[in-house]
Structures are given as C-alpha cells and as structure tokens.
Design a protein around this nucleic acid. Structure first.
Lengths: 138, 138
DNA sequence: GCGATATGACTACATCTGTAGTCTGAACGC
DNA sequence: GCGTTCAGACTACAGATGTAGTCATATCGC
C-alpha cells in the first residue's frame, strides 16, 4: 500500500529481512519472476523503455534487491545472473493481506464491496469468484 | 498500497494534488475520519499511545496532510480544528484499485484466490460476498 | 597478448517519510 | 493587565526511494 512509507516492518515475503520492496524495485522483480535468471542488461531491455529508466537505475535497483535478500546472484563471466529469492505468490499474498489489514481491518468482504462498486469486477471475475466460493464451501 | 515508495503519482483520492498518504499519515486520517473536527492534542490522545508517538510527530503529520490537501484547518482560538478533505471511502477505493492494478493487472479474481488460499475469508465474508454477487447479477 | 568494453562497485543528490526538538507569540487564565 | 502556556511554525536528521553518473577491472573478442 503504497503509502509509501519507509520504515515499515513487513518482510518482502515474510521470509527474512524486514525491508519492503518499493514500487520501482517491484517492477524489476516482475521481470525476473517472468523469466530468470537474467543479466542486468536483459532486465533493462525489458523495463527501461516502458519506465524511461537508464541502465544505472536498473543496476541500482538490482543491487538494492540483492541487499534486501530478494534476489540471488550467480556469476557469469564478468556479470551476474539475477534470480528471485522470494516467490511472486508469496510476495503478492503478503502485500494483499497487508492492504486488507490496513484498510479493511483484515476483512475481505468490504474490499469486495469497494471493488464491486467501482465496477472493477468483470463477468469473468464474478464467475471465477463464484467458483472459488464453491470450493471454499466444500 | 504499500510498496513504499516516495515519488508516486497517484492522488490521495483522485481529487487534487499528486501526493500519496503515507502509513503514518494514514493513521492520523483514520482518527479524523472517525471523528472530526479535532485538535492536534485530541488526535494525539487517540493515536500516540498505540503508535508510541509524541506530540511533535502528530503535529508534523497533521501539517503535512494539510500541505497535501488532505486536511482542512479551522481556527479555534490558538489552535486548529482538523477535518478531512477527502472521504475515507474514496481513499480506500483508490488504494484498493491501485494495489489490484499493480499486483493483479487490474483483475480482482486473482486477489480473491490469494485471500482464499491464505484463509483470509471468514464465513461471514463469504456470505457477504455471495450477497453482493447476487446483487451484481441483477 | 592486448586493447576494448561491459558491468559491478561506489557515489551523488533530490524527495519522501518517520520521528521529534525548539521557538515564538497569541490566546488563555487568573 | 500580565504572566503562563499551548500549539503552530520551523527545523533537524536518519533512512528509504527514485534516478542516474563515474570508475576500475576482469572478462571479452580479435
């Protein structure tokens, strides 16, 4: 939740460390969750045009993610191959829960009400949610 | 909305300004959404013990929120009475959507899948969501 | 083998956020 | 009226984040 806010106390994925992954860092993680390992240059190819970043920016973000324990490095000649150390689903789960806790006191129904009101639910979403609800009731 | 991260571009509630409300600032807004107008001292009474903050901290957060356009001030003698300029529901809606956009590509069903997996859905939530689904299908 | 180069290491700086201290003066209370 | 006090205004500082530049060097390629 984007309230951005520095000194938070949640782990990137609940594993180790206590740092958060920032928006910019998350964009880098997304690239590597899609495909890894990759080099810094490869990551930049995928993200620099859309985000209007330059290579030094990506390198900084990668280094910070390594520092935070979110990425692993594997030497490959003069460069590193970067791989995620946290799973996307774990990260997404933690962040989702954190937002629900923060904005909705941990309750999912109010969140759903909000999304429904704002027409953020497609017919597909509805069908999928109904399917999930059926499974939950088993 | 959590990835904390400074220079974001979303408005507190889509009204004016381009600043985000941080976690700490949000705690202050919550107090004033519950009851306003209130003075800085009153806000501190409600939040300083639980957050282990002192009065200067609250005053800073209030001033920043005023600067961001999220709070209005009404002189009352030597002090101000603070009131929200943005509605909680608007803020919560924006933040929810932002997170769904960011983590789930704007789709709500995957979010529910995550919450369901993590047992974040109570029986009450499920019943409520079903009710909302029924209304949506009308 | 050697010059070129890519890339990590390191640095820079502005802004935001978290937390709090200091000071002044208008309001307050006696 | 006057001393006191409270609270806004202002300041401070550390850490996080966004964005990027510089440099040294090991690897690369010829």
């Amino acid at each position: 939740m984007t309230a951005r806010g520095g000194t938070s106390d949640s782990a990137p994925s609940g594993e180790s460390g206590a740092e958060r992954i920032s928006d910019a860092e998350y964009a880098v993680m997304e690239v590597l969750w899609k495909r890894s390992p990759q080099t810094a240059a490869e990551v930049c190819e995928r993200v620099c045009a859309t985000r209007d970043w330059s290579m030094p920016t990506v390198k900084t973000l990668l280094a910070r993610l390594v520092q935070k324990g979110a990425l692993a490095t594997q030497p490959d000649g003069r460069r590193f191959l970067y791989s995620p150390l946290i799973e996307r689903r774990a990260y997404v789960g933690t962040e989702s829960k954190r937002m629900v806790d923060r904005l909705f006191g941990g309750r999912a129904a109010p969140l759903f009400a909000h999304l429904a009101e704002n027409e953020a639910l497609t017919d597909e979403d509805i069908a999928e949610i109904e399917r999930l609800l059926r499974e939950l009731k088993k």
